[in-house]
């Protein structure tokens, strides 16, 4: 990380964030390649396990494997070594289709709505975002629309103080839409650049709570012409196939525009990103790679694929 040269630095940090994914996938693929002499059924079966083991899911894995088999046939590949390039290219192409930077308002206040199930790291992600924008010289305001969970407002207040930004809050149990309304008014009155809204964690299976958050979105749409500029779904990288269900439901009710993948500093392999890209085409925009305020990276599909397969 001492490498200060912009591009390479970012590349390295993403690589670091994904190093476990990379290590586990790469080392397994490598060892598999080394141990296999020919592309037999056993080889494909083991490859399938490796991909599934990274949480890519059965459907995505099968597609990758199908594609691989086809390439093997068409190009008459016989060496397991060649397989790696094919896999890398395919994963990269799936990810590339959806790569997209964060969207900001042309003028006036940019509004980010942050949503997700319980315990994925919404509040921490918001603190990191606030820190990033503030250090870019932007005026940042936070809104505590998680009025449900015990001490959620206090938690966000502590982060706001640490980062040094203001927080609009009501009391616990208040109507989240009302908090958001006030925050939007305050943001416009104060000439705020970026307003980031924290919402209560909710399981996507709770219909009433999903309606509640759909209402929050409508309030924003009404008050800010082209808002919200981003609806960020925070996803825990350790989540398995249920992430697809989460993303789908949140997309339906809040129009999720991007995904923040958190907790990549564990041993979770993050392969679910590929499944999400393939099935829902929601771009992954940010990665949470640690607990400190700086541990937030932009997502870049090529870097991701490269990091995944770099030696």
């Amino acid at each position: 990380m001492t490498n200060g040269k912009g591009e390479i630095g970012i590349f390295n940090r993403i690589r670091q964030g994904f190093s476990r994914t990379r290590q586990s996938i790469v080392s397994k693929v490598e060892s598999l390649i080394k141990s296999s002499r020919s592309l037999d059924e056993e080889f494909f079966e083991e490859l399938e396990e490796i991909l599934i083991g990274s949480d890519m899911g059965v459907m995505t894995t099968q597609e990758l494997i199908r594609n691989l088999r086809q390439q093997v046939k068409e190009n008459r590949m016989s060496k397991p070594d060649e397989v790696r390039e094919v896999l890398k290219n395919h994963i990269s192409s799936i990810m590339a289709q959806i790569s997209e930077p964060l969207r900001f308002a042309d003028k006036g206040t940019t509004v980010f709505l942050v949503v997700g199930v319980n315990g994925v790291g919404k509040t921490t992600t918001i603190a990191k975002l606030a820190h990033r924008f503030k250090s870019q010289g932007k005026e940042v305001l936070l809104a505590a629309a998680d009025t449900f969970r015990a001490a959620a407002i206090e938690q966000l207040q502590i982060w706001a103080d640490r980062v040094g930004v203001d927080l609009i809050k009501h009391h616990a149990g208040a109507d989240p839409a009302a908090v958001v309304f006030d925050a939007l008014k305050a943001a416009q009155a104060r000439g705020i650049d970026v307003l980031i809204i924290d919402t209560a964690g909710r399981l996507h299976t709770k219909t009433n709570l999903m309606q509640e958050i759909a209402k929050v979105r409508r309030v924003i749409e009404r008050e800010i012409a082209d808002g919200p500029h981003e609806v960020l779904l925070v996803l825990d990288a350790t989540t398995g196939q249920n992430a697809v269900s989460q993303a789908r439901t949140f997309k339906d009710s809040t129009g999720v525009s991007g995904i923040v993948l958190t907790k990549l500093d564990g041993t979770a392999k993050g392969g679910i990103v590929v499944a999400l890209a393939r099935e829902l085409k929601i771009p992954v925009k940010l990665l949470g790679v640690g607990e400190s305020l700086q541990d937030l990276e932009d997502f870049n599909s090529e870097d991701f694929a490269a990091a995944l397969f770099a030696d």
């Binding site: 599934i52 949480d55 398995g240 989460q246 392999k269």
Partner: peptide, 11 residues
Amino acid sequence: DAMTGQDAVNV
């Protein structure tokens, strides 16, 4: 978390 994926075993 019941929604945990393949990593559950490592944890």
